Computed example of a mutant assay.
Amino acid sequence: MQSQDRTKIRIHTARAALSNQAGRFDLSCETIEDGWVSEPDASRVATEIRQEAARTIISYNRSPDLPFDRSLNPYRGCEHGCIYCFARPTHAYLGLSAGLDFETKLVARPNAPELLRQELRAGKYRVAPLAIGTNTDPYQPIEKQQLVMRRCLQVLSEFNHPVAVITKGALIERDIDILAPMAARGLVRVGVSVTTLDPDLSRRMEPRVPTPTRRLATIRRLSEAGIPVRIMVAPVVPGLTDHEIEALLAAGSEAGADAASWIMLRLPREVSELWQQWLAEHEPGRAAKVMARLREMHGGRDYDPRWGQRMRGEGEYARMIGHRFKTACRKLGLQEKTAELRCDLFSSPAQVGDQLSFF
């Protein structure tokens, strides 16, 4: 484990993680400082992009506390680098670290649109809303060149398939030409996550995410294009961002959001240690309070993975946050539950070789 001595922790430019421990399925290794610097600026860690030929693309879940049963991930890892990201431990399945590897060693899945088309055409497929962005952000910076998400949206539009998109990326504005017509058919809803209105805290906690002001501008642009948008106060960080709930909801409402949701900070597996390293470096005066609040909601543990508890915790503090959120939503006219996306329009578009019907 990397030393917690603040003089020995290296802060990497525009990265959130302060360590890069081996994944839980990999052999451990230790970096030794030998006096030699291998690059001009050792604080800079370049982004690496690998290509993966996926075998399937739609993932199914049976989690009772999720509002969807299927999702799609165009990318593994996320360059946004949010230190609190609950998806970080998934990088261990690639033999990589949940730390710096997660935000610097990314995997694109360029055959995702073709696989999606095949899976939607399968005779056994039954339509239901597809969630994108529930693990890693489909509009992280590499999407600008890779275009995996845009091509997946084009496929979904061809099939009239309902989709819910979650993002922090302003790049979603590029795809308004696809999203707006889908929204007019009742096929899409977007959730934009805004964790804090403090640009300094945001830059330290989520280093390559657009600023809070820029994300609110994205909500406005999507809303003006007729695309229903939910502001997601996610995650709520006790002792750090919890005082902003009402202000965040008001800002989202003013920007055009018609709905809202919230999730408490989650620290599964390696995320807990990474988060605590970040707190010790960036918020040492509030670290003890933040962790005490979290443990209070999870029976003395950093995280409780039980369904029904993992998203919001339990106890007086968790109930108070929920009450404040509901009260603010009522005052602002923000919905917590929204109309279901349409599934009745789903159909497979004709392709070369199809037998045409006479009726």
Rank of each mutant, 00 (worst) to 15 (best):
Q4N: 15
Q4E: 15
D5C: 08
T7S: 14
K8S: 12
K8W: 08
K8P: 01
I9C: 03
L18P: 08
Q21L: 08
Q21S: 10
A22C: 09
E30I: 12
E30K: 08
E33Y: 04
E33V: 09
P40W: 03
D41E: 08
A42S: 10
S43R: 13
R44S: 00
A46I: 00
T56Q: 13
S63N: 15
S63P: 13
P64R: 08
D65T: 03
R70Y: 08
R70A: 12
N73Y: 08
G77I: 09
I83A: 11
Y84H: 07
A87N: 06
H91T: 11
F102M: 14
K105V: 13
K105I: 13
L106K: 01
R109F: 03
A112Q: 08
E114L: 13
A128G: 08
A131K: 11
P138K: 00
E143V: 09
Q145P: 05
Q146C: 04
R151C: 10
L156R: 04
S157R: 13
P162V: 10
V165W: 03
A170H: 07
L171A: 09
R174T: 11
A183D: 02
R185M: 04
V188I: 11
V188G: 02
R189Q: 05
V194Q: 09
V194H: 08
V194A: 11
D198G: 05
M205R: 02
E206N: 06
R215E: 10
L216M: 10
A217E: 15
R220K: 12
R220T: 11
A225D: 02
M232D: 07
V233D: 10
V237E: 03
D242C: 02
E244M: 11
E246L: 07
E246Y: 13
L249H: 02
E254I: 09
M264A: 07
L265Q: 09
R266V: 01
R269M: 12
L274N: 05
L274S: 05
W275C: 04
Q277I: 04
L279H: 09
E281D: 11
K289A: 06
M297Q: 11
M297Y: 06
Y303D: 04
D304L: 04
R306Q: 15
Q309A: 09
G313E: 14
G313T: 06
E314I: 07
Y317T: 14
R319A: 13
M320S: 12
G322P: 14
F325C: 01
K326E: 12
T327G: 03
G333E: 00
T338D: 00
R342H: 01
F346H: 09
P349C: 10
V352S: 06
